[in-house]
């Protein structure tokens, strides 16, 4: 079975000349970084192979991201990187201002070679305050979040039933989980999946 490190190694070595150049100044080459077993992270500790924050700028194949804790990240998108923004997207959908979570392999020069980047992804639970054919008003800990149905994208999962494009079974007052894509600097979310317990 191919590990994610092997996949990333292959992707970086195959098309990531920038990564090779960047790591030339480090103590380890990328082969060593990807060839090594992923180091165990102690429970409770920050994971160095994970990053979160908002994109400040995009240059070539690198996202320059300011973490919410004010730590700066350089996130390299390589051939094998998957990007999500309400669904699988191409790299050009990553925009300044987007929030993100990313997982990958931290290179010796500090760059995170990304396996996955989730753009604007949110996963919130709350009560349905109102619902129309196009919108769902969610009370999330007293904060209203306006959730938009996106044709061809939004689905509901009613317990263990297969995903359905029919959101009409959702009811005012019930509790749901909304997984979706945040519209930056608003209280609005585009719905990917609504999870309903029944």
């Amino acid at each position: 079975m191919t590990s994610r490190r092997q996949v990333l190694k292959s992707a970086v070595l195959g098309g990531g000349a920038g990564v090779l150049a960047a790591t030339a100044l480090g103590s380890l080459g990328p082969e060593a970084a990807f060839g090594a077993a992923a180091p165990g992270v102690a429970p409770g500790a920050p994971d160095p192979d994970f990053a979160e924050g908002r994109i400040r700028s995009v240059k070539d194949n690198t996202l320059f991201v300011l973490g919410s804790n004010m730590v700066f990240h350089r996130i390299r998108v390589v051939d094998g990187t998957s990007l999500w923004k309400l669904g699988p997207v191409a790299f050009d959908q990553a925009k300044p201002g987007d929030g993100l979570y990313a997982r990958g392999v931290r290179m010796p020069d500090g760059v995170l070679a990304a396996e996955s980047v989730w753009l604007n992804i949110v996963n919130v639970k709350g009560h349905v305050r109102n619902i129309t054919s196009e919108k769902l008003h969610l009370d999330h800990n007293g904060q209203e979040i306006l959730c938009h149905r996106v044709a061809g994208k939004s689905v509901a999962v009613y317990s263990d039933a297969p995903p359905s494009a029919d959101l009409s079974l959702l009811r005012v007052g019930q509790h749901v989980q909304v997984l979706g894509a945040w519209r930056p600097d608003t209280n609005q979310v585009d719905i990917a999946t609504v999870f309903s317990p029944h």
Binding site: A51, E52, R54, N141, V189
Partner: peptide, 24 residues
């Protein structure tokens, strides 16, 4: 913990140590 979007109003959890980037 420190976060963006709808998560920005979230605190550090009942234990006071919670952080999205940590193994918790």
């Amino acid at each position: 913990g420190s976060a963006w979007g709808p998560c920005s109003s979230t605190g550090r959890g009942a234990c006071g140590t919670c952080n999205s980037g940590s193994m918790q």
